[in-house]
Each structure stands twice: as C-alpha cells, then as structure tokens.
Nucleic acid binder design. Structure first.
Lengths: 194, 194
DNA sequence: TGTGGGGTGGCACTCGGTGCCACTAGCGTC
DNA sequence: GACGCTAGTGGCACCGAGTGCCACCCCACA
C-alpha cells in the first residue's frame, strides 16, 4: 500500500534484518514466526520470503558480499607469504568491522553459534567460504581444489575462525587477536600440546 | 494392525532406516516425503516421527552409540600418547566397519556430505562429537573444555575427519589411511605448504 | 493518455513436525 | 477368565516454513 516512496533497493531488506535480529535476540529463534518478523518490519509474510529465502537468512546480512571480499583478498595475496598467513590475514581483514558495528556482529555470531537451527543453517553458508579458500590453496600448491590439502586447509582454517569467534564472544578482547591466536596454534601444529 | 509379533525394539527402526536410505539414494533427499518413507517401511507417517525426530535423522544410524564409543575410547587413552594421535586413533577405531558394511557407510556419508539439508543437519549431530573431543583435550591440558585449545583441536580434528571422508568417497583407498593422512598433515602444521 | 515492469499483499497449497486420543497386543495379578 | 498396566501404533487436527499464482498499485517512459 504505502509502496515505499523510493526504497533504493535495500531499505526494506535492512528493516527486515533489524526487526529479525531484535526479535531473535529477545526470544529464541525457533519461537519467533516469520509472520511476527514481517509484522515487526511492517511488511507481509509473503514479502518477507521474497527478500529472504529462509527465516535463518535474515540474520546473515550481506554474507555473499562478505565471501566475495574474502575471495578478492585471497586473490590479491603475494606468493611470498605463507598460505596459512594469507588466509589468516584475509579472515582478519574481512572481519574488521568499525567499532560501532561490533555489538551487531556480536549478536549475529552469538545467534549463529548457539541457536541450533542457525548453527545447522550456517553449514550451508560456510560451504561457500570453504570452496573459496580451497581454490586459493589449490592455486598455491598446484593441487585440485578437491584434493586433500586444499580441502583440509579450508576446513581447518574455518575451524580456527569459528573457534576464534567463540572465544571472542566469551571474552572482551579483539577479534583480530583471537583470530591470530587460533591460526598460530593451527599453523604450528598445536605446540602447547607437547 | 499387524502390530509386529515381537519386534525386539529395533526391527521397525531398522526397516525405516533401510527404506529411507534406499529412497534418499534413488532420488534427492528433499523430494522424498516422510509419507513415502513411512509407506515404504510399512508404517504410518506418525510412527515414523516416533522413531526419528526428523526426516534427516533416519540416515544417521546409531550415531549416539557412535559418539559414546568415541568418548570411551578417548577416556581409555594413555597420557603417554600425543593428544592428536589419541584422537586420530579413536576416530579410526570408531569408523572401523566390517567390509560388508562399507557400501552402507559410503552411501550414508555421501548423502550427509552432499545433500544440503543433511549437511546442515550434520552440524547439530557433530556438535556432540566436538564436545566429547574438547573435553578429552581439556583433561589432558588442564584447560576448561571451552578454552581456545580444546575447542580448536576438537573443531580442526573434525575438519580432518570430514576431509578424510571426502577423499575416501572420491577414491577407493581405505578410510583408515585417509584419516591418518589428514591427521598427519594437521599435526605437522601442513608441511607440504612450505 | 496509455503501457509495461517491479514490488507488494492475499490466498491456497505442500510438507515437516507435534499433540491428542483411541485402539490393540502382551503380560502379570487376583 | 476378568482386571489393569504398559508399549507401540494409526488417525486426526493443528502449526509453521516455504512456494506458486494472481491481482493490485505505483512509477517510469513513450
């Protein structure tokens, strides 16, 4: 009805995201219905599912752009730098949010890491990250992207990033420090275990 | 109606699993409805959801027992053995299926690793594995189970196991060899990258 | 003054999953 | 044999996620 006077292709989407994050934070993800999110955003349920394929997708922001930036950063790395270091740097860079956005990121990651439905959904989104990282490693080693080392590096660096997010959420340090700490352990074969 | 003359608590469940795996293999997971699985297993839809909380759960066999065996194996490891080696050995042992069961395992893992809905669901099941492994590492290092190293080791060893399953599925070697290859890379900090 | 396209809302439908109730079979007790 | 208990089952109605279809409205452009 109001039709949105201009809506430069994103206002509505942003309003839905904000409403969804607010509701999912206040109550459990699964108890919030798509109708409630739509109501809170001032749109119809049908329109909600035009902007987001899934209820879960509403918490991911512009993740596609996130993956694309990661890919570009990896493509621009120097061959002099060790592979793991280049991946760590790319993860740090792509997660370098301005301080004002950190509370939002915190809440988003808390939901993704703790709500079972979102945790499950995350696997599908992160598969894109794994593919991008594996291709980067494959370029550097000459392997196929599906070979053992590229896949293992992709999956275990994502494990490092996930762990870093966990510790970042639990503490009050900087995300970059937590990422470096996790990647250092990984790259050195977990020296503290010996 | 037939009521099952004896059904030593598991016949029905096994029949559902077989029917489900057969259908999911022949067609895509998402296109097979719960009704169809129930029909194929000779039970009602309602009964299907009494045996399995989720359509996806029907492909996991006795995963709970799997996790329990893993936990017992880890608890029984010697402190002389390096932590990563103990985890690798436990993964190998718990996945040491008799040759006759390998086709079943192959199909199960292929579905879990390639069907998006099952891939997503797997995250929730594997969270139990991660918890068990992290507790094992924490016992050995004196850390809390939620600390950086226990969590990182748990998540990255699972990454190694997942990668090993991927390469096992793509090739025709032994799963134990693939697991050892992946864990060796991980424990040594990816030596081939340097 | 048309006219075409994009964003929207409403509606009906499928499917996964759940709560409730009724039925049956097996089993031990009196 | 009648009673009650329990476990497994089927049927039904219901909720919520997601989709296809159609009608509508508004804006841009001819």
């Amino acid at each position: 009805m109001t039709g949105a006077v201009v809506d430069p292709r994103g206002i509505t989407r942003a309003r839905i995201e904000a409403a969804a994050l607010e509701l999912f934070t206040r109550r459990d993800f699964e108890t919030v219905t798509a109708d409630e999110v739509a109501d809170a955003a001032g749109i119809s349920r049908r329109t909600f599912f035009r902007h987001f394929a899934t209820k879960a997708d509403a918490v991911w922001g512009d993740f596609h752009g996130h993956v694309q930036r990661l890919q570009e950063l990896l493509a621009a790395t120097s061959d002099d730098q060790p592979v793991l270091a280049s991946i760590c740097a790319a993860y740090v860079e792509v997660n370098d949010y301005p301080g004002a956005d950190l509370p939002l990121l915190r809440e988003r990651m808390r939901l993704i890491l703790t709500e079972p439905a979102l945790q499950a959904h995350s696997q599908v989104r992160y598969a894109d990250v794994d593919r991008v990282v594996a291709e980067h490693v494959a370029r550097r080693t000459g392997d196929r992207p599906g070979a053992l080392v590229p896949r293992l590096v992709a999956l275990s660096t994502r494990a490092a990033a996930t762990t870093a997010f966990e510790t970042w959420l639990a503490g009050d340090g900087s995300l970059a420090d937590d990422l470096h700490a996790a990647f250092d352990q990984l790259a050195a074969g977990f020296p503290t275990l010996r």
